[in-house]
Nucleic acid binder design. Structure first.
Lengths: 367, 367
DNA sequence: ATTAGCACTCATCGCCCGAGAGTGCTAACA
DNA sequence: TGTTAGCACTCTCGGGCGATGAGTGCTAAT
């Protein structure tokens, strides 16, 4: 491709990203310092259209980038755009401060993405095997109640207020806690814990009611698959002129209600390995309703072979430069934070587990 | 107010809620079994308009309810509407299952509200006093690290992985935990805890590094006020015809970005005590951008003097009957779940347990 | 190879007008 | 006196029409 064609293409896309209006030869000649006349540009534009990089909404309108045009732009022309610097440290701090556990980090990441890019943000968390229980603690609340805290292998916490029988002395409570902790340690959350707990009823016979509560709760937890998908910033879509058409916006948002589809979306751009961001443009998303959108995604990892993906969905006209930067930044910050806060588990402890080999072993070179 | 006028008003509002179109006398006479002619209805409508219950978008359109009209409808006419039954038990279960802690319950409640009402849902958690620390627990992770868990008065949990010095025996760790717990109990989170912890350095002199970590962390937490507001279901607004005007929808959503405003919104309808739902209609919200909206709110409470409010924001044309029911339902379910009382209602424990029958105890004052 | 000139296309906007829905008023009616 | 039929009137909505103007493609000159 002709260097001047490149310049023209870049100018058109830059302009279109800025204005959301089809770009005409005249405007282009005037605004950007190309030093050639509109007529020349028209010729180039005709060529570029021929080659498939541009499209015309109708005969006498300016040109608009095609998917192929955006693709070329993202792959080859992006380097020269202006660079909106964002503070890596600030992102890391926000994530770390809000980070009570991995879901918090992920949810917060989605929020950050949405705010920073003014687009819709997605976050998913995959490969989370059932969590094993590491320990159980009990905190007395009042004579009637106590808070049961279950700590997972991954550092996650779950708590449950339990009703105590009348006058249960504090040391007795401690004994119960210890018993529960011993019994449940290593159990998968929800899974086979029932059998183990049954045993408890011998030890803690008189507190059967309490044991039953715990049992029921664990059962409930089992039924509730952990949240795995987050969507944030839906309202940002409305800021984009292409979504001033309400039905179109609705269609996109409605599509995002289907978890399966979001999964698929975040799965699609398969080109990524560590750190790189992937961009899917228009039809490349293979979702009818989103053929006017682009998606920028990146991988993050957490210790314990938890892996997830974050993404930013916006109009094809999005500011790829900034969005890609932000996505990369947030993803890598997540990985850092998760490694720092939750690196409870060295590969060794997992390999003790029979039959559970984690093949993914990303270098979590932590801070 | 004339009984027939009531019927006419009710018919008009019902119709308008259903169709979102101004209601004409002819339509009304035909559809609803009022048994009078359009002309008569016109007279009634003119009267009702005079009295301020109806408005005319323009001279030759049908009538539309005014704020006052909706108010009368909500206060006096609602009883006779059809009753969309929702399962209290189902709601309680969803909340309980997803409930790892109070924030989860609240967030989940917002999601539920949004789904069930097809409107925008708000949830806030007040009692904005800094959370006091109830207890501290420590869970050893590996020889080098431990997980520090801080339990708030309100049952909230925060955790932090701390690095331990070399070779710290388990019982030593327990001693540290007990010391921390004793020292920090009752401290506001972050606030004056620094002074208290200083004292610890005497007790735990050799673990200064650990104490420093805790100190730094508490400082960070202080800077990060806990999340207190949730908004969900923004996209539902687009389903309502009144928000097919994108700028209007944007205005509402933009207004909701301001925490302060949302606080104010949820604060406004001051008429509530326990259980009752409050309705604010149009201008009653005192927010310019939302004068086409209504808000239905209710209070929920959690042990530890945490109090919050949930609400549903929709077009004035919302189905008050259903929405009010749902809001009431979710709020009271939240209160139940947060109190931990729901545990006693598990079918399993009830059948096996003839002795201690669960007493219904809706209002609870122990903290 | 570039550019100026020109004819042509086509979306957009303002305008007018007819159709239709709905009203208020008046007079007739039970 | 309350209700109803009839009627003139108002106002929105949608379609058709022409002017406008941005933008193009082509051709010929540089």
């Amino acid at each position: 491709m002709d260097p001047r064609k490149q310049k023209v293409l870049q100018a058109i896309i830059d302009d279109y990203i800025r204005t959301a209006e089809p770009v005409g030869s005249r405007t282009l000649a005037r605004a950007h310092g190309l030093g050639v006349s509109p007529a020349t540009i028209r010729n180039e534009m005709a060529d570029l259209e021929q080659m498939g990089y541009l499209e015309q909404p109708h005969t006498s309108a300016g040109r608009v980038p095609s998917d192929k045009g955006y693709r070329y732009y993202v792959d080859s022309l992006l380097a020269s755009a202006t660079d909106a610097e964002v503070s890596r440290e600030a992102v890391r701090r926000v994530l770390a401060i809000k980070a009570r556990m991995i879901e918090d980090v992920t949810r917060q990441a989605a929020r950050l993405l949405a705010e920073m890019t003014d687009c819709l943000a997605l976050a998913s968390q995959a490969g989370a095997q059932p969590v094993r229980i590491r320990a159980v603690r009990v905190v007395p609340l009042d004579p009637q109640r106590a808070l049961l805290i279950v700590v997972g292998e991954d550092g996650s916490l779950r708590s449950k207020t339990v009703q105590l029988g009348p006058d249960l002395p504090a040391d007795e409570l401690e004994r119960i806690a210890a018993a529960l902790s011993g019994r449940l340690e290593g159990a998968t959350f929800g899974g086979s814990s029932l059998g183990r707990l049954r045993g408890l009823q011998g030890e803690l016979g008189q507190f059967r009611q309490l044991v039953d509560q715990v049992l029921a709760w664990l059962g409930e937890q089992q039924q509730a698959p952990p949240e795995r998908l987050w969507v944030d910033g839906a309202r940002n879509l409305l800021n984009q002129p292409e979504f001033h058409d309400v039905p179109k916006a609705q269609a996109v948002l409605a599509a995002l209600e289907h978890e399966q589809l979001v999964d698929q979306l975040l799965g699609v751009p398969g080109t990524v390995e560590g750190g790189a961001v992937a961009v899917a443009i228009g039809r490349e998303l293979h979702v009818q309703e989103m053929e006017d959108c682009s998606l920028v995604t990146a991988l993050y990892v957490a210790p314990g072979s938890v892996v997830g993906r974050i993404g930013v969905l916006g109009p094809k006209r999005m500011n790829y430069r900034t969005v890609m930067k932000v996505v990369e930044l947030v993803a890598s910050s997540m990985t850092t934070v998760l490694a720092g806060e939750d690196a409870l588990q060295e590969p060794g402890s997992q390999s003790k587990e029979p039959g559970s080999e984690s093949k993914e072993d990303p270098a979590d070179g932590g801070a």
